[in-house]
């Protein structure tokens, strides 16, 4: 198929960005979206034009490094996938595709389509863990965790930290991301000891870094490639409230 790509170009964090249009032809429907950008970039290099910078690594939907709004949707026009799993069969010959970086204050643009998501690491550094030193653990089966709780915890732990939730939210709220980690750990008996400290520290950090509040629109859940549920946000609110009351 033949397509027109409207891509956000921005030389650096300080530079002013703008859309540029690039025609591209002979793209196979079985080609992945990022492979289509690879093809464009090879052409751009040959034409002496700086290739489009974008984040990507595993290309199988698990590392969370790829991002992009494609036609205004985080991770593009398909459900429950990351951009690297999007295939060109989702588009039609002659389409114009608009490609932008995540737009959120706490995720500044580094170059073109690449943003800095270091804020996510900072939130987790402030409490997204269980304090267990290596070598001090009891036998793994000494802690019984019923299948239901283990599965619920796993549902939340499946978060890949891509930032689509923040990008989808009109307030740039990180509540879905934070609540996924809070739920993952709070649902496990070994995570309960620190649950209150964790909830307070992570929420404080999230606010400090400039993420907005949650107004329950559900856009985060709709765009999450891993189907993380907003019921986790309810659990986060409960954990946080209990922590504050207990104080």
């Amino acid at each position: 198929m033949d397509l027109t790509l409207k891509i956000w170009r921005q030389a650096s964090a300080k530079a002013k960005g703008k859309f540029e249009s690039y025609p591209i032809s002979n793209i196979s429907a079985d080609c992945s979206f990022l492979e289509m950008i690879d093809i464009l970039n090879e052409k751009l290099v040959r034409d002496n034009i700086d290739p489009v910078a974008f984040d990507h690594d595993c290309r199988e939907g698990i590392c969370g490094m790829c991002s992009l709004y494609v036609n205004g949707r985080p991770h593009g026009p398909d459900d429950d996938i990351t951009t690297c799993q999007l295939h060109m069969r989702k588009f039609k010959n002659g389409d114009t595709i608009t490609i932008e970086p995540w737009r959120a204050g706490p995720f500044p643009v580094i170059k073109d389509l690449i943003v800095d998501r270091n804020a996510f690491d900072k939130i987790l550094q402030d409490g997204g863990f269980i304090s267990a030193n290596t070598g001090s653990a009891p036998d793994a089966n000494a802690i019984l965790i019923p299948n239901r709780e283990a599965e619920q915890s796993m549902d939340a732990a499946a978060c890949i930290g891509c930032g689509a939730c923040v990008a989808a939210c009109k307030n740039s709220s990180a509540m879905l991301f934070v609540s996924a980690k809070i739920s993952h750990l709070a649902l496990l008996p070994q995570g309960k000891a620190e649950a209150a400290i964790r909830a307070k520290a992570m929420v404080a950090k999230m606010d400090e870094l400039g993420f907005g509040g949650c107004t329950n629109t559900g856009a985060c859940e709709a765009e999450c490639p891993k189907d993380i549920s907003i019921s986790n946000i309810a659990r986060l609110n409960r954990e946080f409230l209990c922590a504050v009351i207990l104080e």
Binding site: F129, I130, A132, T134, G135, S136, A137, P138, D139, A140, N141, I143, L144, I145, P146, N147, A150, E151, S153, M154, A157, H184, L185, L188, Q190, G191
Partner: peptide, 22 residues
């Protein structure tokens, strides 16, 4: 075996059966 013990202690949600064992 130590790896499994430590991973569980740090919150890795391994698959469990209904009684809660791994």
């Amino acid at each position: 075996n130590l790896i499994i013990d430590h991973s569980v202690a740090t919150g890795v949600p391994f698959a469990r059966d209904y009684g809660g064992l791994l």
